[in-house]
Amino acid sequence: MELAEPARKSSIWEKLSVERIKIELLRTAYGQSRTFLSRFDPRMLIGWYSFFAIAPWFIHNKTVLIGMLLAIAVLTYTSKPSVLVFIVLAFGLVTDTAYMLIVALAFGGGLPAALALSTLTLKLLVIALASIAVFSSMDPEKLSDALLSLGMPAQFSFGVAYGYRMLPILIEEYNNLLYSYRLRGRTPLRKGLLGWRSLVYMGKISILAFYPLILNTAKRTRTTVEALEVKGFTYAVKDPKVKRIKLAYLKILPRDYAFLAISAIYVAFLFWLGNQYTL
């Protein structure tokens, strides 16, 4: 695990280096086990999340949406997500808003039309923040067990946990492959306007480096598949007893019901409030 500082004099690269992304991803995945949301049963959380991921699409009342946003923003704050996730989110929002403004102005709708479109932004924001809050509070193991418990195939839920386990190794390897390109390649002699040639160069090798990564991974998988066979995984998939033993630790406690109840009351209150004062 090394912090890389790729190109010279470019602070943006330092912030966005592969190494940096790896650290942030791992923090998001495994970093915090003690947040407010992590105390609840993962199955309950998935249920709770699916409401906040789907319901906003059918709500057009801005009062309700803003109310939801406030509550979820607080929950997101308690789950201490990584800065990188926010950067990505902010980037999405800014481009989204800009795009809507341009569309609204270009087609003669003017500001009122842009304002109307902003409801969509609000919906997206609620959904995005709910995802961040839930998934950065739930480690991949719990997520995978919850999925298994909710009736997903064992191969799929295993895949989720295994994917996360492989992630740091794959990123490390990707980084080294990228270094291989850099250590034998050559940056463009002229940087071009705003360094666009350098950007194209970096973009090109960033994509090229995926090919050797895929080949290396394919080669590695043979041992993994043999090992899964030896460890009896293929037999466990067919055995309901294994599923029962594995998931025995998942229990829905009174606090899970309490959390659901409070959420339901809050949402009901928002609808009442929305009827009184529509924004």
Partner: peptide
């Protein structure tokens, strides 16, 4: 290549 034999976190 024992590293590829480890499948859990």
């Amino acid at each position: 290549d024992f590293e590829n034999q480890l499948v859990r976190p």
